[in-house]
Simulated scan of single mutants.
Amino acid sequence: MIVRILGEGQFDVPDDKVETLNELDRAVESAVETGDADAFTRALGSLLAGVRASAVPHEAGTLDSSDLILPPADASLEEVRDLLSGDGLIPG
């Protein structure tokens, strides 16, 4: 799976790491639903760190489309609320 973190680039995430990232995504979604800005900041930071830790940077210069796009670390709760679908930031 190719994941883009806005402002950072693309990462190749192995299939066996997607469920772990979904757990981190659920924490982001929960914080957005409750409007808890502090929990949101922590959860989004953990999700982005999880992508960076479990993935390798996608080859620079390729024109491959991303399977999903994540907001940057400095995204606001309101901005992410607008991005969320019924499946969170990471579908599945």
Rank of each mutant, 00 (worst) to 15 (best):
Val13His: 03
Ile69Cys: 07
Asn22Lys: 15
Asp12Val: 14
Gly88Glu: 01
Pro71Arg: 01
Ala37His: 07
Leu70Met: 05
His58Ser: 15
Phe40Arg: 08
Leu24Trp: 07
Ala75Tyr: 09
Ala31Ile: 05
Asp12Phe: 09
Gly9Ala: 08
Asp16His: 14
Glu19Leu: 09
Val51Arg: 03
Leu24Ser: 10
Pro57Ser: 09
Asp15Thr: 07
Asp82Glu: 14
Leu63His: 11
Val3Leu: 03
Glu8Thr: 04
Pro57Glu: 13
Gly88Tyr: 01
Gly86Arg: 05
Ile90Ser: 03
Ser65Arg: 14
Pro14His: 02
Ala60Gly: 07
Asp36Trp: 02
Val32Tyr: 04
Glu59Ser: 06
Val28Phe: 06
Glu19Gly: 03
Glu59Cys: 06
Ala31Met: 01
Glu78Arg: 12
Val51Glu: 07
Leu24Ile: 02
Gly50Val: 05
Ala49Met: 05
Gly88Ser: 03
Ala60Phe: 04
Leu63Trp: 05
Ile2Asn: 03
Lys17Asp: 09
Arg4Val: 01
Leu63Cys: 03
Val3Asp: 06
Glu33Leu: 13
Glu33Met: 04
Ala39Arg: 15
Ser66Lys: 08
Asn22Ile: 07
His58Asn: 11
Leu84Pro: 00
Val28Glu: 10
Ala73Ser: 15
Asp36His: 13
Ala75Glu: 10
Leu44Gly: 09
Ala43Trp: 07
Gly35Glu: 05
Asp64Asn: 11
Arg42Asp: 14
Val51Ile: 11
Asp25Trp: 02
Asp38Gln: 13
Leu24Lys: 15
Glu8Asp: 13
Glu19Thr: 11
Phe40Pro: 09
Glu8Lys: 05
Pro72Phe: 05
Gln10Met: 13
Pro72His: 13
Leu70Pro: 10
Glu29Phe: 06
Ser46Trp: 01
Thr62Ser: 15
Leu70Val: 08
Ser85Leu: 07
Ala53Asn: 15
Asp25Ala: 08
Ala43Arg: 09
Leu63Phe: 10
Val28Pro: 13
Asp15His: 07
Thr20Met: 03
Ala27Asp: 14
Thr34Ser: 15
Ser65Pro: 02
Ala55Ile: 10
Asp15Gly: 06
Leu24Phe: 14
